[in-house]
Amino acid sequence: MDIIRTIAQIGIIILFYLVGEYIVSITGIIIPGSIVGLVLLWLSLYFKILNVKFIQKGASFMLAFLTLFFIPSTVAVINYPELLTVSGGLLILAVIISTILALVITGKVSRIIEEKEKQKKEGEHVTASSAKSIYHK
């Protein structure tokens, strides 16, 4: 029974994928159809159009095998020996430096926003307590 339920739920997810692909093909927007399907599924869950019970088994099953599904495409690296040339090396170097920059800049920006929000909250707290003390007088 569990197997049938999981397969049916995978069917529902595939349906969202096909709708996403269809929307991309008729509107010509440049986004992967799978992402359109993801957004539609999230919205359906969030607005309670679809109960999460109807997809959670199927979704968990597919996510457990997510890596398996892209291995065949990754193996295609066999057809690209230019990765082992100088320009391939520079490509990898650019990605390393860019990732370091993204990590540091993002971490710092997020830290500053967090600090600002904290100060704002503390500020509110101070005005609230001083208002209270005025009230007490």
Partner: peptide, 27 residues
Amino acid sequence: YETYMEGGQWLSKMLGPAVVALAFPLY
């Protein structure tokens, strides 16, 4: 690689639906 893909293509076809399933943890 083309010979390998005789079978591999069937696994690849599931990639798109698996991406849709990422909506579940995000929810």
